[in-house]
């Protein structure tokens, strides 16, 4: 239980640090970074509510299920700022529409929205973000390099790719075999804690060195 509190504190502090840093840098942040800042703020709120939910009612599925669609919209809009293909309105709108349809179908038709995680939508979300990240890297490789260092968006995308690659398998496989794991589900928890720490401290570090990364 101690470990749970330590991990939660690290994640919440990292999120809090990134959000404060966003406010401090608000005049220097570009639009895409502001979207990441908003994403982190909403993640913090969702995580806090989920934390309270688990402490008070031992329940938080509703919060994560509601937050997942917000997260999908925010990150798709973020990638539409940095990725050539997603800058095209028609492509972006199609992805958002498809995501919304899958979300509604998964939440209403296949699962109990109040009791089960919408893993079908999560799978679509994970695959989308892994693809968007790879598309961004493809664009980065094709653009003429004027700088020896990598931009803040390279690191944001790198963190998102790591997080969503992990989520893709851990959620998909993890949830489908979750019932058979019994006590060993602790391993799944450890892995999720680890990736969350890496992700949110990663965002914190990018915001910490934001000015340096931007000026290069």
């Amino acid at each position: 239980m101690y470990l749970f509190y330590i991990v939660s504190s690290i994640i919440l502090l990292s999120l809090l640090y990134s959000i404060i840093r966003c406010f401090v840098l608000k005049h220097t942040l570009d639009k895409a970074s502001k979207i990441i800042g908003l994403y982190l703020l909403l993640t913090l709120i969702a995580e806090l509510l989920a934390f309270l939910g688990i402490i008070l009612y031992r329940y938080n599925i509703l919060i994560y299920n509601t937050y997942s669609i917000v997260q999908f919209y925010l990150l798709t809009i973020y990638f539409s700022q940095t990725t050539v293909l997603l800058k095209k309105k028609a492509f972006r709108s199609s992805i958002l529409l498809l995501g919304t349809l899958i979300y509604i179908e998964d939440s209403i038709v296949y699962r109990d929205f109040m009791l089960e995680p919408n893993s079908g939508f999560l799978a679509f979300e994970s695959i989308s973000f892994v693809c968007f990240s790879l598309m961004y890297f493809y664009d980065t490789l094709n653009e003429r390099s004027e700088s020896h260092s990598l931009s803040q968006h390279f690191w944001f995308t790198g963190i998102l790719l790591t997080f969503w690659s992990f989520t893709l398998l851990s959620w998909l496989v993890g949830l489908s075999i979750y019932q058979s794991l019994k006590d060993n589900s602790i391993i799944l928890n450890y892995m999720m804690w680890a990736i969350n720490i890496i992700t949110y401290t990663g965002f914190g570090l990018v915001f910490l060195f934001y000015r340096k990364l931007q000026s290069r």
Binding site: V130, T162, L169, G174, I195
Partner: peptide, 18 residues
């Protein structure tokens, strides 16, 4: 084992790409 190695493999893929 499937879960741990699969997830590690996916995460490693991301790290190597970066």
């Amino acid at each position: 084992l499937v879960l741990v190695f699969g997830t590690l493999l996916f995460t490693l893929f991301a790290v190597f790409t970066i």
